[in-house]
């Protein structure tokens, strides 16, 4: 289990990285923390001809709060976010730090990056779910310049995004959650990728309709559950929530009973957490 031959290129700036990706062509791949890419290379399931290392690019690992919006640089690690006082103490973003406990284990969190997780777009990973839950904007830079992609439009499916091959995620902007938040996930073992997960933002005020419920485990990419969002906004009971999730899962054509119950269970748990905070 050793990677196939590869060429290594170290980018000094984002534009340098974009140039490298453009010059080297489609068989090139960005590497940052490497926590997903390197094992795939070791199994030879991924065999890029060129690696463009962006970890030496200065300034991409910042975590900043401005105008209530949290901007996390692509190279910020999961552990940096978990321990960031900025994230922990921001009223609208505490869930992000709390959710980091579910990302792998410490030695993965010290290397794995936010940008890498977003770009890798594993449908069961925490970052894509958080991005959709918060209505985050993903900033990417490519030959055509810089653009912001709403998270909901970014994830096409499993391991698939709408990013171009020459585009690099540089930062992710998280608007604050207006209401209380909750998160729950289930995997066979602690630290595993989730079989089902749910993130919830309660409505910002009584009567408001801005609740959000996003789950993984119901579709290849994290998915909002509209009926459940309405139910959460209406302060539904556990049983009513269960029925609304089932209705949403019918829409998504999830027909495996076990998977349906897992997703439902996680939504109810996440709502419970949000309501008790």
């Amino acid at each position: 289990m050793k990677p196939a031959p590869v060429s290594y290129h170290r980018a000094s700036s984002v534009s340098d990285a974009v140039d490298l990706l453009t010059t080297l062509g489609e068989e090139s791949k960005v590497i940052a923390g490497g926590q997903s890419l390197v094992p795939m290379m070791s199994f030879r399931l991924a065999r890029p001809e060129h690696l463009v290392d962006i970890t030496r690019i200065p300034g991409l690992d910042s975590i900043e709060l401005a105008d209530d919006e949290l901007t996390i640089g692509a190279l910020a690690t999961h552990q940096a976010v978990l321990e960031s006082p900025v994230v922990r103490h921001s009223a609208g973003h505490g869930l992000i730090a709390r959710t980091m406990r579910h990302v792998g284990h410490l030695p993965i969190r010290t290397r794995g990056t936010v940008g890498g997780s977003i770009a890798h777009a594993d449908g069961s990973a925490e970052w894509p779910l958080l991005a959709v839950l918060f209505g985050a904007r993903v900033v990417a830079e490519g030959v055509a310049g810089e653009r912001e992609v709403p998270a909901e439009e970014l994830f096409f499916g499993l391991y698939t995004t709408c990013l171009e091959p020459d585009e690099i995620v540089t930062r992710v902007i998280f608007p604050p959650a207006k209401g209380a938040t909750g998160f729950a996930e289930y995997g066979l073992r602690h630290g595993d990728f989730a079989l089902a997960a749910a993130g919830v933002v309660l409505p910002s005020a009584v009567g408001a309709t801005d609740a959000r419920v996003v789950v993984s485990g119901a579709a290849p990419a994290p998915t909002r559950l509209p009926a459940t969002e309405a139910a959460v906004a209406a302060g539904a009971s556990d049983e009513a929530l269960r029925q609304s999730v089932m209705a949403d899962l019918d829409e998504l054509e999830v027909d495996d009973d076990y998977q349906r119950d897992l997703v439902t269970g996680m939504v109810i748990k996440a709502v419970k957490e949000a309501r008790t905070r």
Binding site: P39, R189, H190, D192
Partner: peptide
């Protein structure tokens, strides 16, 4: 099972 993602050895948490 070709990896530890599929062959699930319990950890200290289990």
């Amino acid at each position: 099972c070709a990896s530890f993602m599929d062959y699930c050895i319990p950890t200290a948490m289990e």
